[in-house]
Simulated assay, not measured.
Amino acid sequence: MSVLVLVVDDEPDVEALFRQQFRRDLRAQRFVMDFAMSAADALARIANTIEQTLILILSDINMPGMTGLEMLPKVKEIRPDVPVIMITAYGDPDTKRKAIEGGAIGLLTKPIDFTLLREEIDTRLERAN
Rank of each mutant, 00 (worst) to 15 (best):
V5Q: 02
A44W: 05
I105M: 06
R127C: 09
I105T: 12
P12Q: 09
R23D: 13
D13E: 13
R23E: 08
P80Y: 13
G102C: 06
Q20I: 09
K74V: 06
R45T: 09
A89D: 07
F35T: 10
E11F: 05
R45S: 13
R23W: 07
L56F: 05
I85M: 14
D34I: 02
G91I: 09
A40S: 13
D25W: 10
D92L: 07
K74W: 05
E119S: 12
M33G: 01
V84A: 01
A47Y: 12
P80F: 12
L43F: 03
D92Q: 07
F114I: 08
R124L: 07
L107C: 03
D13S: 06
D81P: 10
I55E: 00
I57D: 00
E119Q: 11
T49G: 13
I87W: 00
A42W: 04
I50V: 15
V75T: 03
P111T: 15
E120M: 12
D9F: 06
Q52F: 13
T109S: 11
A47W: 12
N62K: 11
I78K: 14
T49H: 15
G91W: 08
I85K: 05
A104N: 04
I100Q: 09
I55M: 02
P12G: 09
L69H: 01
I85F: 10
E11I: 04
F31V: 00
M37K: 15
L108M: 14
D34L: 07
T95E: 09
K110F: 05
S2A: 14
M37V: 13
A40W: 04
D113Q: 03
K110W: 04
D13K: 07
N62M: 08
V82Y: 05
D60G: 11
P12D: 15
L26H: 12
D10W: 07
L72A: 05
G65D: 02
I85L: 11
G68S: 11
D81W: 11
G91H: 10
M66V: 06
L4F: 06
F31R: 01
L17Y: 06
A44C: 08
A89I: 01
D81K: 14
D13C: 06
R19S: 11
D122Y: 11
M66F: 07
K96D: 04
I46C: 12
T88H: 03
M63E: 04
L116D: 15
A89E: 06
M33H: 02
